[in-house]
Design a protein around this nucleic acid. Structure first.
Length: 872
RNA sequence: GCGGGUGUGGCGGAACUGGUAGACGCGCCAGACUCAAAAUCUGGUGUCCUUUGGACGUGUCGGUUCGAGUCCGACCACCCGCACCA
């Protein structure tokens, strides 16, 4: 009986409706089964989903469906990272209210995601721009404030002149705003900060325990936190030009061992000492201004020369009364790291060496590689930063740099400068506190009021939420909240006199730093229901893009620590397993008129040469590089189009096949068609099975074809499960292809001839296994196949079948037989054959006998169940 | 500059702790079916040699080993992250 083609357009909505009606994917918090929380990074509602979303959510859905089939109570929620700039840009360009724009986008994208057939618990959905959500975020802010984790300070900020807002250090990339791409300027503003640096050490140390995170991400965070162990040393100021009140120059160094190689001191242009000296020295003042300007004018840093200006100030060397060193203002010293001052040791630091050579300062080698001659070893052009032996360093000579470090630390700890200990060990971090103030409308309002009399007054909990006003206008640049008197002007909660609301809103990274916790109890009257949060967290498997390796993941790790202090949850690490998926990339096409979208391109191949032709005009196009799908190169494929023509399952299946999930996947028309063909082929196979295998009773033992079919099926079942556990979806799919290949022959033979009940039973079992292992990837298709076979219950509700351990091991093995390391023959032998039996059998092989030509082998290596090597 | 990663057929990629390199897919070639095409099915497909058979082959060079894509050393290319962090 011929079967109709599988029609996803008909099948997919039908099964989606059934799943929804049965509320299969809604998760209860009081379910006794073991929990599993799988989460994909929630999307920004930009307008429509793109292929990156399809890949991300397809992966998460495979895990969710698999874990559910394995008997877990799976939490798999979805929401919207809905505050942010694009909504305001849309408002300014198209006169749409950010709220309307955002919620309309959410509606569109929700429909799109639903068409993918994802097993999501939509009952827990929320958007971060819902008042119900940011209300609780405001409460968290107040909690943090109570716990000393929030403070306000005037600071130099990164100002994005295009977006008219402040950026966190993390949001400045190569001196440009991460979103606008505009060169960032420095401004002095009073900002709110989260004390993420309170947790520097914890955030660093705990990385060790995140063994289900990619090594790469852990390393990136480690470098970002940037711990360094050094010594804080006071250098006594001795010159008569010393500014009043300053007795010592405080310096931080990780290389106190090189202290006898010091030849100058360098301080930042903003260093108090520099400012002080500049007050009476116009030339120096001009130099400092120059430094600051260059510092702000972005990546010219790379080429910027090391320049300095002698302040005339002199300091005394800690170990030599008579040794005085000049203090320079230098453009390469940063005020916000360490103490803003360094001592320069030219022989041990390339930057210091360049500086010393430029200004004619002494260069004394103090660390020498082992084996060099100390009388002739010199540093001229290249600094030596490696390990070795101390030289020219008085009492340190002969020791290692590490020993010298300790010796200097101990000796200086006993000395004093101006009544204070001269040196102490100090740990420094590169990590800065997180500035969260943004001069934007479309964000979570910061719940404080500024009162002339009382200062900064936090709102009381019962005064929350501070809702965003709806009646705003975007006619002028800047923050509309600043121009909204009825919202802005309030009475001081403390004294009642006229006051103003804080008009800055929070960085949107705050919104995404705790949403995973809110999902565990989205209707709780507090930010979390601690019992629910502790039951569900940490997220077992988090999946998203590598672009969030630092910002979002570090902030979230901070948040769970801070929320723990506030009693909102009791986990330190929010994400137990992290997976960073690769991008979806596509070929680019270019014609005379610019980039051409794939949908308008026809590809041809002649004599191995590929050509791209414009569908309408027939113009020959240049095939360009394979790049991330983006609007600018127009190499985007719309998921809606793919789902409409091939169905969601095909899109999901193709996304998961071929490329390892952590690498980029190249989207090709041919690849999608291949996936679609495979589904159709499998559909025909299931159709044949439905015709021939319907009334077969199970048979206990089997042999021949039946046995090999059973073994193939159970091996696949075992392997696919293991591959999914390791998120190796591409390998799981290869196994599925193999199984289909292996059962299609025997199935046809059954259909063509007399029924062989053993084989039929084996095939029936194999086909059911096939459906089960495909279900996580192609869930609608699996339901349809199951129904075709007469299955009464839903695959989405079914348990993962258990494989039969006896069937995954063969009783015989085929061993390659090598002679001197080269394969010359094969030997099929009982799996448990002992060494002697194998050797005997190998020596009997014709290939081995002719190679030996009567002689005895020197050695025979038998690796059980693996290989035999005969050494002659 | 520092840190990390990757390198395997025409292409995407398999190969667990060293043990038959190229699973699976795409593409391509041939055949079957068809008036024809599409669809489908079957077979083939690393390179080279005249073959039965053999030689070579996992970026390059060298090493360890009975045996190396896998381990060690040196180098090359590309990609990513950080970047004046003292």
């Amino acid at each position: 009986m011929a079967i109709e083609r599988y029609n996803p357009r008909d099948a997919e909505p039908r099964w989606q409706k059934i799943w929804q009606e049965q509320r299969l994917f809604e998760t209860a918090n009081d379910d006794p089964r073991p929990k599993y929380y799988v989460l994909e990074m929630f999307p920004y509602p930009s307008g429509r989903i793109h292929m990156g979303h399809v890949r991300n959510y397809a992966m998460g859905d495979v895990v969710a469906r698999y874990k559910r089939a394995r008997g877990h109570n799976v939490l798999h929620p979805m929401g919207w990272d809905a505050f942010g700039m694009p909504a305001e840009n849309a408002a300014m360009q198209n006169k749409v209210h950010p709220k309307e724009w955002t919620y309309a986008n959410i509606d569109t994208m929700r429909t799109q995601l639903k068409s993918m057939g994802l097993s999501l618990d939509w009952s827990r959905e929320f958007a971060t721009c819902d008042v119900e959500y940011y209300h609780h975020q405001q409460q968290l802010f107040l909690d943090f404030l109570d716990n000393g984790l929030v403070y306000r300070k005037q600071s130099k900020v990164n100002w994005d002149p295009v977006d008219q807002t402040v950026l966190a250090n993390e949001q400045v990339i190569d001196g440009r705003g991460w979103r606008s791409g505009a060169p960032v300027e420095q401004r002095e503003l009073t900002q709110w900060f989260f004390r993420i640096t309170d947790f520097s050490e914890d955030l660093l140390e705990s990385l060790e325990d995140l063994d289900q995170w990619p090594e790469k991400v852990r390393l990136m965070q480690k470098n970002w936190i940037g711990r360094s162990d050094g010594l804080h040393i006071s250098w006594e100021i001795v010159s008569e030009t010393a500014p009043a009140g300053e007795a010592a120059l405080e310096v931080y160094t990780t290389r106190p061992d090189t202290i006898f190689g010091a030849s100058f001191m360098a301080i930042a242009a903003d260093h108090p000492l520099a400012l002080n000296a500049a007050a009476s020295n116009p030339e120096l003042a001009e130099f400092c201004r120059e430094c600051r300007r260059a510092g702000t004018s972005l990546a010219a840093l790379e080429t910027a020369d090391k320049v300095g200006f002698d302040t005339g100030i002199r300091v005394r060397h800690p170990f030599d009364e008579n040794w005085k060193l000049p203090v320079y203002v230098a453009n390469f010293v940063l005020m916000d790291y360490g103490t803003g001052a360094i001592f320069g040791c030219p022989s041990g630091d390339q930057r210091d060496l360049d500086f010393a050579n430029k200004y004619g300062l002494p260069v004394v080698a103090v660390v020498m590689p082992k084996g060099e001659d100390p009388t002739s070893f010199q540093i001229t052009e290249d600094a030596y930063v490696g390990d070795g032996v101390m030289i020219n360093s008085r009492f340190l000579d002969g020791s290692t740099p590490q020993q010298a470090f300790d010796t200097v630390a101990e000796k200086l700890a006993d000395k004093t400068v101006a009544g204070k200990q001269q040196a102490f060990r100090q740990v420094n971090y590169r990590l800065r506190d997180w500035g969260i103030s943004r001069q934007r409308y479309w964000g979570c309002p910061i719940p404080v009021v500024h009162c002339d009399a009382c200062g900064v007054v936090p709102l009381r909990r019962e005064e929350l939420p501070v809702s965003l006003p709806d009646d705003i206008d975007f006619d002028k640049p800047g923050n509309p909240l600043d121009r909204h008197p009825t919202w802005r002007d309030v009475a001081c909660p403390k004294c009642g006199s006229p006051a103003k609301r804080e008009t800055d809103t929070m960085d949107t990274f705050v919104d995404s730093s705790w949403y995973f916790a809110r999902f565990t109890a989205p209707d709780a009257s507090e930010p979390t229901d601690p019992a629910a949060a502790d039951a569900w967290l940490p997220v077992d498997q988090y999946i998203g893009g590598i672009e969030h390796a630092i910002l979002h993941l570090l902030y979230s790790r901070f948040f769970s620590r801070a929320m723990k202090i506030g009693g909102h949850l009791d986990v330190k690490e929010p994400f137990k397993g992290l997976f960073t998926q690769g991008m979806v990339v596509h070929e680019t096409y270019r014609g005379k008129g610019g980039w051409v979208a794939p949908a308008e391109v026809k590809l041809e191949e002649q004599d191995g040469v590929r050509r791209a032709v414009h569908l309408d005009s027939g113009e020959e196009l240049t095939i360009g590089a394979i790049e991330k799908m983006s609007k600018s190169t127009r190499n985007v494929v719309d998921p809606d189009d793919i789902i409409a023509s091939f169905g969601a399952d095909t899109a999901r299946f193709f996304m998961l096949s071929d490329s390892p999930p952590d690498r980029d996947v190249i989207w090709t028309e041919a690849g999608v068609e291949g996936a679609y063909r495979f589904l159709q082929r499998t559909w025909r196979l299931i159709g044949d099975a439905a015709d021939t295998l319907q009334y077969v009773a199970p048979v206990a033992s089997s042999a021949g074809d039946a046995a090999s079919v059973s073994r193939a099926a159970h091996r696949t079942l075992k392997a696919v499960g293991e591959d999914i556990e390791r998120l190796a979806f591409n390998k799981a799919i290869a196994r599925i292809y193999e199984l289909v290949n292996e059962i299609s022959g025997p199935l046809r033979s059954v259909a063509d001839s007399e029924a062989n009940t053993e084989l039929c039973a084996a095939l029936r079992d194999a086909v059911e296994i096939l459906i089960a292992v495909m279900a996580p990837m192609t869930p609608h298709f699996a339901e349809e196949c199951n129904a075709l076979l007469g299955g009464k219950s839903l695959v989405a509700k079914s348990d993962w079948p258990e494989y039969d351990p006896a069937l995954v091991i063969d009783s015989t093995v085929t061993l390659p037989v090598q002679i001197n390391g080269k394969k010359r023959a094969e030997l099929t032998i009982a799996r448990d054959a002992d060494q002697q039996t194998v050797e005997y059998a190998v020596l009997g092989l014709p290939a081995v006998q002719s190679a030996l030509s009567g002689k005895a082998p020197r050695k025979i290596i038998v690796v059980p169940q693996r290989i035999v090597n005969v050494v002659i």
